[in-house]
Amino acid sequence: MSTPARPQVSTQPSTPPSPYATASLPAEPAKPRGKWWIAPLTGALVALPLQLVAAFLLLMSPMALDSCTAANPCGRTEAAIGATAVLLLLALLSLGVPWYLAKRKSVGAGIGVSLIPLSLTLASIGTLLLGIGLG
């Protein structure tokens, strides 16, 4: 006659399962698309020369303020020069954004984001030209 098997009793205290232990491991990161760099490079090659033009115009724009006197204030021109400086700084800072996003997102996102520095640069030129009265 066989004796019934007794259940094994552990002498160690039981610990609750960790919430991190049940999570699955993350999948391997997706490999970047081929030729992801074309859109950011094209955007940078178009935007950089325009940014140089905008910087040149910004440096020359104080001459537009030579005719400003107490009787003829040029507040609009001063505001345009300040806005152009801010827009041009944003355009320079935004040159790195397309490189980061184009590598990780879709082709459309890469092309769309690559237009941000160009549009900020064109906006800075337009703001400056309107402010000094050439637009």
Rank of each mutant, 00 (worst) to 15 (best):
L87C: 10
L93G: 15
L120T: 04
G112N: 06
K105P: 02
G75Y: 09
I132S: 07
L101F: 13
G82C: 08
S114G: 08
G82Y: 06
G96K: 09
I81G: 04
T77F: 06
G110L: 08
K103D: 06
A109C: 15
G82K: 12
G126P: 00
L128E: 00
A79G: 08
G96Y: 11
L118D: 00
G133H: 05
A85E: 09
G75P: 03
L122I: 07
S94H: 11
P117V: 04
I111T: 06
L122E: 03
L87P: 05
G110S: 09
T127A: 13
G131Q: 05
I132Q: 06
L120E: 04
G96N: 12
L88S: 07
T127W: 01
T84I: 09
G108W: 12
G133M: 10
I125S: 00
P73S: 05
G110C: 10
E78D: 12
G96F: 15
V86Y: 04
G108E: 09
S114P: 01
A79K: 14
S124L: 04
T84K: 07
P73N: 03
I111A: 07
A102D: 06
A102Y: 04
L87A: 13
A80G: 11
L129Q: 01
L134H: 12
L115I: 07
W99C: 03
G133V: 05
L90P: 04
